Simulated scan of single mutants.
Amino acid sequence: MREQEAGAMADGDGEKALLSRMWDFHSGLRMGFMLSAIADIGIADQLVEGPLSVDELAERTGSNADGLYRVLRAMASKGVFTETSHRVFGLTPLAEIMRSDTANSLRDVFRLQGKHFMRNAYAEIGYSIRTGRPAFDHVNGEELFAYLARHPEMNELFSGAMGNAAGQTQQAAVEAYDLTGVRKLVDVGGAHGHLLASILARYPDMEGVVFDQPHVVPGAERVLDEAGVLDRAELVGGSYLESVPSGGDAYMISHVLHQLSDSEAITVLANVRRAMNPTGRVLVIDPVIPEGDAPHQGKFMDITMMALSRGRDRTEAEFIEVFEKADLRLVDTIGLASPSSVVIAVPA
């Protein structure tokens, strides 16, 4: 009898743990919105010199003190900020990532996801599940990059968020791959040049090209100049679905292919294949999704792609397939367990 009671209690405890976990998932929606709002307001930047009272924070940021307190209290319970004394808050290691001025900042990433044109797309993910089409186009009436081209302020924020990402997962992926000997690196879809700037700084004998849409690439000049590498870089505007600059020893395609359908990805890779030197190589930086139930950030990035574009994150087998159709051959994949891997291909 006691064994049965113990088993029932154990089963009850297990059910409570499962329910608690599901409630945590439910709370995650609110946590995401709070992170976006606090990032947009810039609270973490106000706390660089030390803890401040909610009243002081509210005055500095034009916020309501009571509303701000309640949100910071909730976030502090998850380790983002800490209430050092009653109604006084300071930074934590997690909150530091919300600052604008740190190397590992994700502030613009959180700001971006809170904007109506982005969050409405995520909220309509059911549309993508039912139709297989991007929820972004459904709620905004046009595809993502057309929208950004018409809204310069949001395009600037989007590029900043991509720069945050370049400083995190993409940069870590590149650091795992030795680019010694590459004389000319073409960054296809390089946006504002954050990733290329960091690479040129590491390889002083290398020259680089930032290639992206004409309304995007001018923003790379400041980034490359601040990194001290502008004299070794060229900015070229165009569409990678039509052509890419020729003569590169290596072509880096970072977090671009996963925004594209398979047919579009093959078109870009084929354009690179035609433009590259005979001994050149293609470096694709994207999540590589593992098979089965293995946890991986790429599985959630893939949902972002489903909501925002006609793209997808791919398994290694799927990369092999699109490479082959572009007359390329996959030769190595570095960092399979990482959020983003380097997938290397050469002419077939």
Rank of each mutant, 00 (worst) to 15 (best):
L269S: 02
G292K: 07
G228L: 09
A149L: 13
E59M: 02
A345T: 03
D286I: 06
N120R: 14
S159K: 06
Q171F: 13
M22N: 04
E142G: 06
H194P: 01
K299A: 06
I334L: 10
V71N: 03
R312N: 09
I334K: 10
L52F: 02
S27F: 14
V71A: 12
V322P: 03
I43Y: 02
L336M: 12
A317E: 13
S128V: 08
P51N: 05
N120F: 11
F25W: 11
A6K: 13
V272Y: 07
G12P: 02
A294R: 11
G167H: 05
Y203W: 04
A275Y: 04
L19R: 13
E264S: 12
Q168Y: 07
P51E: 02
M252G: 11
V216G: 04
A146W: 12
Q297G: 13
R99C: 14
I285Q: 01
Q170S: 15
H151V: 08
A44Y: 03
L52N: 04
M31S: 11
L52Q: 11
Q46K: 09
G311F: 04
T180F: 01
E175R: 08
D13V: 13
E226S: 13
V88E: 11
D286H: 12
V182N: 03
G32E: 05
A275L: 07
V80E: 03
S243L: 11
A270K: 15
L19S: 04
D178A: 08
E324C: 04
E316Y: 00
I320L: 09
D45S: 07
V343G: 06
R87K: 15
I97K: 15
G181C: 00
R2H: 09
S36L: 04
M75E: 07
R111V: 09
T84P: 02
G219M: 02
D302L: 02
F319R: 05
R73Y: 08
D302E: 06
S239A: 13
Y203C: 02
R60A: 09
G7C: 07
G247I: 15
R130L: 05
E96K: 07
L68M: 08
E56T: 15
G167Q: 05
H215C: 00
S20Y: 08
E153M: 06
F89Y: 08
T333A: 15
A123H: 08
A250L: 13
D101Y: 05
A250G: 11
F33C: 12
E153W: 05
S105C: 10
E207I: 00
V210H: 01
R183I: 00
L196R: 03
L144V: 10
V322L: 14
G228V: 10
A146N: 12
R119D: 00
S341R: 06
T84C: 08
V174F: 08
A103M: 10
A250H: 12
F211S: 09
D332M: 00
L47N: 06
A172L: 13
